[in-house]
Design a binder for these strands. Structure first.
Lengths: 202, 202
DNA sequence: ATGTAATGTAGTCACTGTCTACTTTGTATT
DNA sequence: AATACAAAGTAGACAGTGACTACATTACAT
């Protein structure tokens, strides 16, 4: 970190952290390699030693994000419950909570210009996530939930709710939308009510 | 269109159409004002006469998209049904069908870098859409659907399903995902099964 | 200790968005 | 019909960006 050293130390990680901050503050459009380099007090070409190009940086960021969101989804309270419904409900809450707390990373996850240049690591991270959701959904089907619905379709449905809800809730549009009562709501209650709609605990 | 004329005719509209094509082909990252100008055989500064800047072009595109998706949502078969559930179900199908057929425009709708610089027209278009959904959801509540759930939360839930599902289904990631049976499915059946999950016709 | 690979620097290039001054053309007014 | 004016397009310039190159510094394995 000290400016006296020629070598930076762990520039790659600092670049990623700074990238998350910038996206949080100004969106993906505000992200520039040269801007990051300036912020870290390093020459404009330095980031190229750690990321082949801008797409590679975004891809790394998205891969990191998928790992994080999977972790948040699987480590939430009650995920380990023996009741598949309670477990899946907990996963949904963990997912939505993480998305609301990490809007910048969340937005990179499904960003089309990121997925378009996805490398193998990113594809594998995405696959792991969808697999985890699919497994949990399959478990609820074994106890009678939504019988007859193809697993892949049911998984899309279950996944779409926290994803679509988060997309809407972190949309800058909401800021312009005055009548909303949601901004005053307790976050946990909001999460609970939304997830209970898609995975009822009856 | 003839190259012999100094004035182009209706350049603004042609710019928008070409922009949609470019986003369809190469994503939002492939969209450049100069590229559009080249494609239309016009000087690089010409688009500035019709759009103050790139953000204004994207904003116009998004506004147009919101109008289109609202139209597709409200004009689908059975939307006029007297049964609020059947009507809302039809709206969901109309929405999802449109999104799958217009991935480029759909992606601009909630693109954070677009909403961030939203002008009044865009905000109003968004508001009209959410209002239409909210009204239809409220109608289903009057006949006993999801009693006790706050309307705004229920609306987010209802909206999240076709939105999140479309987001996933048009994700370039799916291309890398071999085991998927979804790509071989009939689109209408896919739409029907997904929407029936969130708005059951019992 | 030393040489080699990793890491950072400085310079350059094409491309982009945006601005300005200028040119051409459609149209309303007389 | 002539003409003035606004709308629309052109050409040139500028700074910022991503990416590449050649070069400098440093860490580390041998």
């Amino acid at each position: 970190m000290s400016k006296k050293h020629y070598h930076h130390g762990n520039l790659a990680e600092d670049i990623l952290n700074r990238a998350v901050q910038i996206i949080d503050e100004g969106g993906l459009g505000a992200l520039t390699l040269r801007g990051i380099a300036r912020d870290l007090g390093v020459s404009h070409g330095a980031p190229n030693r750690h990321f082949k190009n801008k797409a590679a940086l975004l891809s790394t960021l998205a891969t990191y994000g998928w790992h994080k969101v999977l972790e948040a989804t699987l480590r939430a309270d009650n995920v380990d419950s023996l009741d598949p419904r309670l477990s899946l409900n907990a996963m949904g809450r963990g997912f939505l909570r993480w998305a609301l707390h990490n809007p910048a990373l969340f937005r990179t996850l499904h960003h089309p210009d990121v997925a378009r240049f996805a490398d193998d690591a990113l594809i594998e991270a995405m696959r792991q996530f969808t697999q985890a959701i699919s497994d949990a959904v399959a478990a609820t089907q074994t106890i009678g939930n939504h019988p007859g619905v193809p697993l892949e379709i049911l998984s899309i449905y279950i996944n779409a709710v926290p994803f679509g809800a988060a997309m809407f809730l972190i949309d800058p549009f909401l800021t312009h939308y005055e009548q909303s009562e949601i901004q005053d709501m307790d976050e946990e209650i909001l999460i609970e009510q939304l997830i209970n709609l898609v995975v009822p605990l009856k």
